[in-house]
Design a protein around this nucleic acid. Sequence first.
RNA 1: GGGCGAUUAGCUCAGUUGGUAGAGCGCUUCAUUUACACUGAAGAUGUCGGGGGUUCGAGCCCUCCAUCGCCCACCA
Length: 724
Amino acid sequence: MLSQDDKFLKPYDPAATEGRIYKAWEDSGYFNPDNLPNADSREPYTITLPPPNVTGVLHLGHAYEDSLQDTVIRYQRMRGKRALWVPGTDSAAIATQARVEKNIQKEEGKSRHDIGREELVKRVTQFARESETTILNQVRRMGASLDWSRYAFTLDDARNKAVFTAFKRMYDAGLIYRGNRIVNWDPKGQTTISDDEIVHEERTAKLYTFKYSKDFPIAIATTRLETKVGDVAVAVHPDDARYTKFVGKTYEAVFCDVPISIRIVADKEVDPEFGTGALGVTPAHSMVDWDMAERHSLPKDKAVINEYAKMTVEGRLSGLKVLEAREAVAEWLRSEGLMEKEEDISQNVSTAERTGGIVEPLPKLQWFVAVNKPFVIPHSEITGIETGSEITLKQLMRASVENGDIVMPQDNFKKIYMHWIDNLHDWCISRQIWFGHRIPIWYRESDIRCQETAPEGDGWSQDPDVLDTWFSSALWTFSTLGWPDESKDLERFHPTSFMSPAYEILPLWVSRMILMSGFHLGQVPFKTVMIHGLVRDSKGRKFSKSIGNGIDPIEMIDKFGADALRMGLLVGTAIGNDVKFDESKIKGYKNFANKLWNITRFILENTEDADLTAELISNDTTIREELDAIIADVTKDMDEYRIYLAAEKIYHYIWDRLASELLEESKQIFASEDSTAIASRKTLLRSLLKDSLKILHPIMPFVTEEIWQSLSETEGLLMITEWP
RNA sequence: GGGCGAUUAGCUCAGUUGGUAGAGCGCUUCAUUUACACUGAAGAUGUCGGGGGUUCGAGCCCUCCAUCGCCCACCA
């Protein structure tokens, strides 16, 4: 019966197929675009994999992201492109170090200070390497056609060189500076954290209304009484008639044992409706107050709280924790008769995402990237920005998208991006942790040098901080292609073609890649960015360890096959929206893989002896043209990254049209005596099958490749076969 | 407070530039070894959140309202 393969007598078995097929692809060398037939005449098409964090194992969100990108890169490869998909992993400094520190604390009861910098970095690196292996195997199981020969890790030698070079060039251009600024300090983790790592929690708090002293003319309202010993001014709105007569005056007082000197200033940021319409200005412990102090040339160095969230002032508050101090101040105000009102309000408290500690704004010496400082761009290929013109990083980021060099087909994300750019402040890039790229700055007394290794001579010490992990991630599209060397890869594959990150990291990562690529290369990092949504559980919750609702993609692959998982994640979800994960949907596409398997069986059984050059009769020609129309439609969807629509169309064609109608109809024809019709139908079915396999391959690569290999008339891998 | 979305079948969601409402799952009835039971056939289910507007024509465009969600933001 079946001359070629008895395997079609049994249901399709992904487990017996996928490993073997992946190996065949890998062995072929075609994941590396330089090995593709006629590589040099192909137009490059590049995707950089958003590098997963080496903090553990992959989740379904990664599986979704991998499916999306692999589908695109396979499609482009079949379209004859020099298709490169660059793999890599991210050290995720804070997250990884926190993870390992937690383990050490749990297993050995030691803190990082107990084991020391060198040992901790060693252990974190070891953890990262193990986690990396797990992750890469998971990515392989998904069928991802990544060019493993170009694999990159954010902390490997080549990337270290890129990070140093990037830092140095920006430092020399005056765009990286050290400044004493209010940062988000996490007293629990003993590190600064970026705005993006803050979680706001709604809590009720007491709003106290009081006066500094009996003869102070204005009452002010605050929730943070303990910081008031650090006040240097009271700000009121310039148009507030109640207070204009006081503006410009200075009052002395002793507040809770601490001598203070308060100037009354007028500032339009003050909301006259809130509280008493007067705001106590505490420059050292509030970002807005810091800015205000700058505007009015007020002293900014009056710190009253330290890194451990304890009071540093003399007197009754000395050494108290902030919450204790708050109560002590309230007590004092009541006893002095200065408290006018105490009321409950709801307020958002900033907490650190990683540690849960309450964020304390503190002035600290940190490294920053200046986004509003003009510089002369040495080279630019970006529309609207001339080489040698003076611009700011913010303008560069805006122009890259506004002028169309980067296409963001989703208008809503474009709006979010623009809005974010408009509100952008200087980017704090230093972190007080140990795992990561150490800041390449050396100090000796008042001397500062920016270099990778210690300068000549004694007495140099390196800045203890490491860089924000997004600093190295921001270089990713070009650091993975050999930059800062002028490599062939860089010239050929950059700007990359397509990027598809989750909307969560639009500001964190996407915008910063645009910044870095613009500054260092005068290019955009990618031409099209398609933001995707999150995979959630069936109740719409995010997957998280604390809920325990995580699903390992490998478990799904074992159960239903990688093809089914890919298809199930992609079909019917408009890119950008969240996906509610539904196991029964995945199961449905396992059945689909088997359906295709049985279609093949039927066709092989009936066309074994066929002369595949037989002329099509007119009815069959019509059927053939019908598929051509669908292919054209699918091609358009794929070109415009509407994979979810393409997938659905292919599914329906194969199941409802090819299997349910055409195969049934063919049974009648094969049972007839009409040899012309039979010959024509045999040729038709083989041709429909082959093209169906081709258009399904980017989405369901394993089963289609396996069937392709069983067809006598096909040669080579379906993976590099030309798209119909 | 600022910004961005969502609301379509019982559930989860598609619906591209405005042109007779779609899929999967579930449900009902039938078929019983057929290429495939990981199956086939047939079927039911909708005031497209609500009001108003533009249009020959609106799920889609405009406007108001309701409900839900997300992101950003230390009204102290």
